[in-house]
């Protein structure tokens, strides 16, 4: 794992601590800070009769029946369908966001045109509108689209993805734009002289070099689209088409019939895809380092 082999084979605590040991101390402290509120969620997910926060006695019972019920025994709450829907919506949104954002970032980074500065700024400003009631307009918009193209309107996953892609430009573009700027322009100039068109330069020269930021933007977009609740709950009405965020919330939305333990089990399982995706993408995120070290 470590790229630089230790020069001295003998282990010296002080030296180890000065080099990486303190990093582990910080890592452990923050790992505890990150994880300890979620231990409650895990504990309640394993206790079918417990409450979420009724007691500080954690893991008084370890029983997987909440998980079994969620996966197999609740035809009214099709957890497996929600899970798959979420994966599809998250992956399609993430990949499309990366593609649309990278196209725009390339234009902003490599081309000079009137309104470029203002354009970049406007992209960010538009997204600052308070979302408090944007859903009203989104509902009416999708309702109108449904009347023309039912396949991409209300209660369709494509419709939801389209709404999410409305946010594809914006912060993400800016993030990529900053990264694109660090790729030397001499590379595309060289490609141009070799006779490569703009599209080929983009796809074969630039994109491979900006892998880390593509991975980061893809992950951010995946997580934000899979955890998004407000728009998804307005667009998707049929339970079999809903996402995890919408479906799981229905377990606890009514105080009198809230089922927190079942909800917790669902939340634990819902957290797996983003973490798995991150684990998978890490090598691309960090690729810059390794590539640099190899060179």
């Amino acid at each position: 794992m470590s790229q630089l082999p230790a020069r001295r084979p003998r282990f010296r605590l002080r030296k180890w601590f000065a080099a990486t040991g303190w990093r582990h101390v910080i890592g452990i402290v923050f790992a505890v800070f990150c994880a300890f509120p979620l231990v409650y969620v895990l504990s309640s997910s394993l206790n079918p009769n417990g409450t979420l926060l009724g007691s500080n006695t954690l893991f008084s019972k370890v029983d997987f029946s909440n998980y079994v019920n969620l996966l197999f025994n609740l035809p009214q709450q099709p957890f497996v369908a929600w899970f798959l829907n979420t994966l599809v919506i998250g992956l399609v949104t993430g990949a499309s966001t990366v593609f649309l954002g990278a196209l725009a970032a390339y234009a902003f980074s490599r081309m000079r045109f009137a309104g470029r500065r203002v354009g970049l700024l406007t992209l960010l400003l538009v997204q600052m509108f308070p979302q408090l009631l944007a859903v009203v307009a989104i509902f009416l918009l999708l309702n109108a689209i449904s009347n023309i193209f039912p396949a991409i309107g209300l209660n369709t996953q494509i419709g939801l993805i389209l709404v999410y892609l409305g946010g594809a430009l914006g912060v993400n573009t800016y993030l990529m734009y900053g990264f694109f700027n660090t790729v030397p322009a001499s590379l595309d100039e060289a490609a141009k002289i070799d006779g490569a068109g703009h599209a080929r330069t983009f796809f074969t020269i630039i994109l491979p070099l900006v892998g880390p930021i593509l991975a980061v933007v893809g992950l951010l977009s995946f997580i934000s689209s899979t955890s998004e609740y407000v728009v998804a709950s307005v667009v998707l009405t049929d339970p079999t088409r809903q996402t995890l965020a919408v479906g799981l919330y229905s377990f606890i939305s009514q105080a009198t019939s809230a089922n927190w333990t079942l909800f917790s089990a669902g939340a634990v399982m819902a957290a797996i895809p983003p973490m798995a995706l991150f684990l998978y993408l890490q090598k691309y995120v960090i690729s810059g380092l390794t590539a640099g070290a190899v060179k």
Partner: peptide
């Protein structure tokens, strides 16, 4: 972000835990 550090992957995944839960 230190190449010498072991277990970075694990730490990094734990760091995004709060982001992965609703």
């Amino acid at each position: 972000n230190d190449p010498r550090m072991r277990g970075k992957k694990i730490y990094r995944v734990i760091m995004i835990l709060p982001y992965a839960f609703p």
